[in-house]
């Protein structure tokens, strides 16, 4: 399922026009991205949480050439699946 499928499914379920469903989905994911950009945390009960992890600088390798390169510090989003979703995914329910 991609973003347009999600928009379609939301529109159908809540009787929204395509434009309304698009606005709703876009504003939700934009608010997520804005929060993560500020280093914040998103926690949705039953679904999971997104947190920002800080990675320091380390010596890595260019997999193509084998040469050593210095990887600069970076921030990455990390998702921890919530209990309910974890169980549903595993049981296929």
């Amino acid at each position: 399922m991609n973003k347009s499928d999600l928009i379609g499914a939301l529109g159908k379920k809540e009787n929204l026009t395509e434009r309304q469903a698009t606005e709703a989905i876009n504003s939700i994911f934009k608010s997520f991205a804005d929060k993560l950009k500020k280093g914040g945390r998103i926690e949705i009960r039953g679904f999971g949480s997104f947190v920002v992890r800080d990675y320091g600088s380390y010596a890595g390798r260019n997999p193509k050439t084998g040469g050593t390169i210095q990887v600069t510090p970076k921030k990455l989003p990390f998702f921890k699946v919530g209990k309910e979703l974890k169980e549903r995914v595993n049981s296929g329910a």
């Binding site: 999600l6 499914a9 379920k13 709703a24 039953g46 549903r88």
Partner: peptide, 12 residues
């Protein structure tokens, strides 16, 4: 609804 749809999709 958005989270329900996402959960259902992933559960399937």
């Amino acid at each position: 609804s958005v989270f329900d749809i996402m959960k259902e999709t992933l559960a399937s």
